[in-house]
Design a binder for these strands. Structure first.
Length: 539
RNA sequence: GCGGGUGUAGCUCAAUGGUAGAGCGCUAGUCUUCCAAACUAGUUACGAGGGUUCGAUUCCCUUCACCCGCUCCA
């Protein structure tokens, strides 16, 4: 159970978010709508910075990732192939006596929580009729609201990447291993939206699908598959990496990303999914957690955290599903594999063939393909190896933007109590955002408002910086008040134009005061160096 | 979906079956040479709907939203 003190902290955060314009309740003037939140002026800047950093880190700064921006509404067949239509719409039965909720098709198999000796279907509790439970938001494409026009708002962005896999491969001049990145909105009719923006019905994801060679193909080309040597970052990608090393690599890459925007390892948690938790097609999933104020505390007082991102090794399940449902091949041709295969000794070929065949057969049988068809298809797939053909496997780092924003806000939130000369103490909030994500990079202000020369110079400094970063000009009230205002917005630096800037001391002509948010320290910097100084810290 | 709590100004909180108040913030002005200074003026609220009542922000019902616990979470 969360500590009551920490719920107070969460309330303070929510209240600050509204007061300063980070997050508002959606449709607030009409009483709000459950599970939907808006970003105000500061929140919008913060979110934009985070998405841009992710995009730059994951695509522009890498040779091996290409971007995609797909639609939110897609062919409903996508969601049949992905499994969402089936798993998202189980009819559910509620028991009015024990308050339990059960899948209608399982009431004969689940024991009653109150009378474990009986199955749910046999217990005396009064139950509702089965009700459809669909977690996908649904709409109609076209003006006619008929069954055949039903479409869904995507519950995840990933499926579009799989559906467009071949197009991206052909147009991006990439070769496996490579990834496709996408940032965008997704929608889920959550049963219980909770914890401020943490679980919302409309939210944004940053997803990478990183396609790799199946281990059998790596082995055919490189002779063997490298085994993970130690925990931590495995270094630059190598041709002999199988799914395990690629998975470890992406977990560590993602942790580096979080560290780079101010969430150090001590604020994060990790959850390695157990075999029982894993989806049947997944090989491994590591969740990166953040210790939120509302995160549960266990008996030992440890906080595990709540999920920011999951990094899943998903085998070739997704592409295989789309291959089966669309009838279009999702396999790729790899010249290197074909060449290498021809040089392998017969027993090696047979060994790899058998393993690939087995994996394909398992998948097909679990997907409900008739055994004789599964054997035939798996044979065909394994025969493809010799021709340089295979279906890529995938490592999926999938992050929630809004959850990360909330983590950054919670992490930045700091209360500072100052006592003035009269002994009056006052608590104020300092949002200690990393400069890279801070909504405003610099506050620009004249020391005094009633001196036109100071104002004019300060406005010139603002205009100098404005094309390069988000800056905020403020000349209202005392300088201390303006600093405090910027502290609450999380602005890392304030630039103050004073009389020395104007040449009161000739050696300080055209220099300004830089005031640091976190310790209040000041230093002097020439206006000519200002832009590069700020840019070096803010990106 | 169930149970409990909450809903008054931008924020924090008060009072009241009979015209709703404070602090902070915000805006304008005077002043101000570095950390929410002072003064003046201004600004804004009873979540929504219905009922009881001469009269409801206050009592009752419904609804919406938020928080906590349970449930759910591909």
């Amino acid at each position: 159970m969360a500590d009551p003190k920490e719920n107070v902290l969460m309330e303070k955060i929510v209240s600050l978010c509204k007061r300063r314009g980070f997050v508002f309740q959606s449709s607030e003037i009409y009483g709000g709508i459950n599970g939907f939140w808006d970003y105000g002026p500061l929140g919008a800047e913060l979110k934009r910075n985070v998405k841009e950093l992710w995009w730059n880190t994951m695509t522009r700064m890498r040779e091996d990732v290409a971007g995609l921006e797909a639609t939110i509404i897609m062919s409903p067949k996508i969601w049949e192939a992905s499994g969402h239509v089936a798993t998202f719409s189980d009819p559910m039965i509620d028991c009015k006596t024990c308050k339990g909720r059960f899948r209608a098709d399982q009431i004969n198999d689940i024991s009653c929580p109150q009378k474990p000796s009986k199955m749910v279907s046999e217990c005396a509790g009064e139950k509702t009729a089965p009700r459809p439970f669909n977690l996908m938001l649904q709409t109609y494409v076209g003006p006619i609201q008929s069954e055949e026009n039903i479409a869904y708002l995507r519950p995840e962005t990933a499926q579009a990447i799989f559906a467009q896999f071949k197009n991206v491969l052909e147009t991006s001049r990439q070769k496996v291993p490579f990834g496709i990145a996408q940032v965008g909105k997704a929608f889920r009719n959550e049963v219980t939206p909770r914890n401020f923006t943490f679980r919302s019905r409309e939210f944004e994801q940053m997803e990478l699908e990183f396609f790799i060679k199946p281990d059998e193909v790596v082995e055919a080309i490189s002779g063997s598959v490298a085994t993970p040597a130690a925990a931590g970052h495995p270094g630059e990608p190598q041709p002999n990496w199988g799914w395990q090393l690629w998975h470890q690599y992406w977990v560590e890459e993602r942790v580096r990303f979080y560290e780079g925007i101010g969430l150090d390892r001590s604020t994060l948690g990790f959850h390695i999914q157990t075999p029982e938790e894993l989806a049947h097609y997944a090989r491994a999933t590591t969740d990166i957690l953040f210790k939120f104020p509302f995160s549960k505390v266990d008996e030992q007082g440890n906080v595990k955290g709540d999920e920011l991102e999951g990094i899943a090794a998903r085998s070739d399940f997704d592409l295989s599903q789309h291959e089966r449902f669309s009838g279009k091949t999702m396999g790729i041709f790899d010249e290197e594999l074909r060449t290498a295969w021809g040089k392998l000794p017969k027993e090696k070929q047979d060994d790899l063939w058998r393993r690939y065949y087995q994996a394909r057969k398992n998948y097909l049988e679990k997907s409900g393909v008739k055994p004789e068809d599964a054997e035939k298809d798996a044979t065909e797939d394994a025969n493809g190896l010799a021709k340089g053909q295979y279906i890529p496997h995938v490592i999926e780092p999938s992050a929630g933007v809004d959850r990360l924003i909330l983590a950054l806000i919670a992490n930045a939130f700091t209360e500072v109590t100052d006592t003035d000369d009269k002994g009056k103490s006052e608590t104020r909030v300092v949002m200690k955002f990393h400069p890279r994500v801070a909504p405003v990079k610099a506050g620009v202000m004249p020391l005094l408002k009633n001196k036109p020369e100071l104002v004019k110079k300060a406005l010139a400094v603002r205009d100098l910086l404005r094309p390069w970063m988000n800056v905020y000009y403020d000349d209202a009230g005392s300088i201390g008040r303006r600093y405090a205002r910027q502290d609450e917005a999380g602005t890392p630096y304030c630039v103050t134009v004073d009389f020395e800037t104007l040449g009161e001391k000739p050696e300080l002509l055209d220099t300004v005061t830089i005031r640091h948010r976190d310790d209040g320290k000041q230093e002097r910097l020439a206006i000519g160096e200002l832009r590069d100084w700020l840019l070096a810290r803010g990106r």
